[in-house]
């Protein structure tokens, strides 16, 4: 019997951008996603963290825990994002304190209960979904600083045909040996430091005749409304500028040079 096509939607880094989340969920359902996965970092950056969490949980999104969620869940002192620059840490802490103070205990308990990884079957493919990397939740795997042989090592060591990750905030993918693949599924929380306001999620489709296809999908949403709500919540003007301009204004020092040159700060 002919195997049906399977389609799953994946995203990471909601960063409390519930308006983009709403738009992405609608779009993924319209495109026929059978399952929707969130690879962690529900909070940070944006306003009203409970709104994203309510939406995620009521929409049956299958979620894994990111470093932010582990921190908020356990009320750690910081987000464990791994910034090294004092300015980046200053803004990360403002955002973290706001998010922790505005997240309900029920959501925090849910975050604590989430797994750090999911094994997914997509047709015959063994897909491993994680937050940063399969070996460390908050490891940055940037496109320009991650060699192909290292990714080959990861898929071999973790018995996967496809590894899905997020954490860096910028989508990318690379074909590996033996038709295996690494995919950073992107984030919904903020634009990609390229001067565009839209954010991204990823659709993975497996068809017996075609194999795996991967599509990065831009998500338009009401960025002006999000910005107004961020201002009303007294979140930093630098964050608002990123939402409106599409360029990162913080978290800059962890960017490798290729990724940083695409921005203007």
């Amino acid at each position: 019997m002919k195997q049906p096509t399977e389609r799953i939607a994946c995203f990471g880094g909601v960063y409390s951008n519930y308006l983009a989340l709403e738009a992405a969920l609608r779009d993924a359902q319209r495109r026929g996603a059978e399952r929707i996965y969130c690879l962690g970092d529900f909070g940070a950056f944006g306003p009203h963290p409970n709104r994203s969490l309510e939406l995620l949980r009521s929409s049956n999104v299958i979620a894994i825990q990111g470093n932010y969620d582990q921190s908020i869940g356990h009320a750690f002192a910081d987000c464990q994002c791994g910034y090294t620059d004092p300015r980046d840490n200053h803004f990360a802490q403002l955002s973290y304190d706001y998010t922790l103070a505005h997240t309900n205990e029920d959501h925090r308990a849910w975050m604590r209960s989430l797994p750090a990884q999911w094994r997914i079957e997509l047709g015959p493919l063994r897909v491993l979904a994680c937050h940063g990397s399969p070996r460390k939740m908050n490891e940055f795997l940037w496109e320009s600083t991650t060699s192909t042989q290292f990714l080959d090592h990861l898929v071999t060591q973790y018995d996967a045909d496809v590894i899905l990750a997020t954490h860096t905030g910028i989508k990318w993918q690379r074909a590996l040996s033996g038709r295996r693949r690494f995919i950073n599924v992107g984030v919904l929380g903020r634009p990609e430091n390229d001067g565009h306001r839209h954010v991204w999620y990823t659709m993975l489709e497996y068809a017996p005749s075609e194999g795996l296809s991967v599509e990065f999908i831009p998500v338009e949403y009401d960025a002006g409304r999000l910005a107004r709500e961020m201002v009303a919540e007294r979140l930093p003007g630098e964050f608002v500028e990123t939402i409106l301009s599409g360029y990162w204004t913080t978290c800059l020092e962890v960017l490798p040079s290729k990724e940083r040159r695409r921005g203007k700060h």
Partner: peptide, 11 residues
């Protein structure tokens, strides 16, 4: 290491 390759200490 470069800052892009560092990760925060685990708690």
């Amino acid at each position: 290491s470069n800052p892009s390759s560092q990760s925060a200490r685990e708690p």
